[in-house]
Structure formats: structure tokens, C-alpha cells
Design a protein around this nucleic acid. Structure first.
Length: 111
DNA sequence: AGATTGACTAACC
DNA sequence: AGGTTAGCCAATC
């Protein structure tokens, strides 16, 4: 059975930042990383993937820096990513024909 | 303690 | 346009 590992300080920061994202917006791995003073977007991705929904964080609101969908639920493509996309659309996020999200819908922790 | 992994990114070829 | 390399950094092996 799943053994829960207490979240690390780093992960706490990631989750906290996620909660700051307004509904109807997304952020990027990098913007999130800058917010918590981490220059590795990869480490952000790791924090998210290592954490199941136990954190209660809206982990679907994080996309890649090029504003494409990015991964979800441990996968970079496939069904989980489809779910992520649907989830974002249901929250008001729109996707352009090239698969990117308009910059106006991105939240970069400007405030 | 060192090597590997990875929901990343940018630069290079 | 698509593959490889390099940089990044926390968690895991």
C-alpha cells in the first residue's frame, strides 16, 4: 500500500505557490521555480510528480515555459495529459491551434 | 556518499 | 524541423 512521505520544505513551497494561481490561469514550471528561488524547472516537475494528490494542490495549473500543456500524473503524454487539458478548459483556459495557451492566461507571480 | 532519475529549458547541431 | 548536449536541482536508488 502507499506509504506517505511527509512533504519536504521544497515541496511545501511548490504547493504554496500553486495555491496562489488564480482560477482561470496557469503558471509555468520556470515561473514557479523563480518564485521559490529555484533555477531548475526540472526540480519543480519532480516535486509535482512525486506528490500524489495528497497535497491538495492544483498541480494541473502548471505548464511548460513554451506554454504547451506539459505533463500530468507522471506522464508526458497520453490519457493523463488529456485529462489535464480538459480540466484546464473547464476552468476557463483556452488552447490555441498550435496547442499553446495564450500568454494573457498565464500567471507569472507579478503580484 | 555517489549515481540515477525526471510532469524542464535552452542551446547547439 | 528534429535529435543531442548541457545546465539545472530535489528526491530516490
Amino acid at each position: 500500500m502507499n506509504e506517505f512521505r511527509p512533504p519536504t520544505t521544497f515541496e511545501q513551497k511548490v504547493y504554496d505557490a500553486l495555491h496562489l494561481i488564480p482560477k482561470g490561469k496557469v503558471t509555468t514550471y520556470r515561473a514557479l521555480g523563480e518564485y521559490i528561488s529555484c533555477r531548475s524547472a526540472q526540480a519543480i516537475g519532480q516535486a509535482l510528480r512525486r506528490n500524489p494528490m495528497a497535497s491538495g494542490a492544483p498541480c494541473h495549473r502548471v505548464v511548460k515555459t513554451d506554454r504547451t500543456i506539459g505533463g500530468f500524473s507522471g506522464q508526458s503524454d497520453g490519457e493523463p495529459v488529456m485529462r489535464k487539458k480538459r480540466l484546464l478548459e473547464s476552468e476557463g483556459i483556452s488552447f490555441q491551434e498550435d496547442g499553446t495557451i495564450p500568454e494573457e492566461q498565464c500567471y507569472f507571480f507579478d503580484d
